[in-house]
C-alpha cells in the first residue's frame, strides 16, 4: 500500500499559554490517501485555517506528528520547510495572491524558478500549465489586467506547475462570482481526475459537494468525516449555479 499523502496523528496547536491558552486544534487524527479530493468545512474559528497552515508547512504543531508524503515536518528547519512547500505543495488562496506587476507567465514560472529549473524548461512548463487552466493566450497579462476568475486560474496554474503531491486550497472561491466559482471548481475536478490529491478548505456547501470526502470541524476537532460517491467530472456549469 502506498504511503498516505497526509498523515496527522494527535496534532494539537495551542496559541498563548496558561489560562489564556487557546486550543486551535485539539488532537486531530487525519489520513488522506493519494488521489483523494477532500473538503474541510467548519465555521470560522473552528480551527480549519490552523489546519491549513500546519498542512501547508507554514506552521508547526504544538504536539502530535504530521507526515507529509512520508516526511516528518517537525524535524524540518526553515530552509527545508521552504523546500517542502516548493516541491510537495501547491497553494491556492482566497485572494489569489499573485505577485503584482508581474505577468501571469512569470507568476506561474516563479515556483519553478525557486526550484532551480532552467529558463527554457520553465517557460515551457509554465505555458503548459497556463494552457491547462485555459489561459494560454493570457501569459503576458499582468494580474491587474485579469478578472478575478482568471487570476484564480493563474494561481491554480502556479500551484500545479511543480506537480506537487498536494493541492492545498484555502477558500478558493470565496472572492469569486458564481460563474468563476464554477470554472474554478471544474478545474479542481479536472486536476483531481488527473490523480492529484486536493485538500480544499471552505465554508460553502457548493464547493464541498464536488469533493469525494467532506470533513467537518468544530472547536478544533473533527466532528464528521463522510465519504461520498464522486460526482461526475465536468458537470455542466448550470448545475453548480
Amino acid at each position: 500500500m502506498p504511503r498516505p499523502v497526509l498523515d496527522l496523528r494527535g496534532v494539537t496547536k495551542v496559541f498563548g499559554a496558561g489560562d489564556t491558552a487557546v486550543h486551535a486544534l485539539a488532537g486531530v487524527d487525519l489520513v488522506v490517501e493519494r488521489g483523494e479530493y477532500v473538503a474541510v468545512m467548519g465555521a470560522s474559528g473552528s480551527g480549519k485555517s490552523t489546519l491549513m497552515n500546519i498542512v501547508g508547512c507554514l506552521d508547526v504543531p504544538t504536539r502530535g506528528r504530521y507526515l507529509l508524503d512520508g516526511v516528518d515536518t517537525r524535524r524540518l528547519d526553515e530552509g527545508r520547510q521552504a523546500l517542502v512547500r516548493n516541491r510537495k505543495i501547491g497553494f491556492v488562496f482566497q485572494s489569489f495572491n499573485l505577485i503584482p506587476r508581474t505577468s501571469a507567465q512569470s507568476n506561474v514560472e516563479l515556483p519553478l524558478a525557486y526550484a532551480g529549473v532552467k529558463l527554457a524548461q520553465r517557460r515551457e512548463r509554465a505555458a503548459a500549465a497556463l494552457a491547462r487552466v485555459g489561459l494560454a493566450d493570457r501569459g503576458h497579462h499582468l494580474p491587474s489586467e485579469l478578472s478575478g476568475g482568471q487570476q484564480q486560474r493563474v494561481a491554480i496554474a502556479r500551484a500545479i506547475v511543480t506537480e506537487p503531491v498536494l493541492l492545498l486550497a484555502d477558500e478558493p472561491t470565496g472572492a469569486l462570482d458564481s460563474r468563476s466559482t464554477a470554472e474554478v471548481l471544474d478545474l479542481f475536478d479536472d486536476v483531481s481526475a488527473g490523480g492529484r490529491t486536493i485538500l480544499v478548505i471552505t465554508h460553502e456547501e457548493e464547493v464541498a459537494e464536488r469533493a469525494h470526502r467532506v470533513i467537518r470541524f468544530r472547536d478544533g476537532r473533527i466532528v464528521s468525516d463522510e465519504r461520498r460517491a464522486p460526482r461526475g467530472t465536468h458537470v455542466a456549469v448550470g448545475g453548480a449555479a
Binding site: 501547508g56 507554514l58 526553515e78 530552509g79 521552504a82 523546500l83 512547500r85 516548493n86 516541491r87 497553494f91 495572491n97 499573485l98 505577485i99 503584482p100 516563479l110 515556483p111 525557486y114 526550484a115 502556479r158 511543480t162
Partner: peptide
C-alpha cells in the same frame, strides 16, 4: 510584505 509571504509560501528560501 504580502508579496514576500507569497514568495515564501511557494518555496522561496531565506537566501532568495
Amino acid at each position: 510584505t504580502r508579496e514576500i509571504g507569497i514568495r515564501k509560501a511557494i518555496g522561496a528560501r531565506r537566501g532568495d
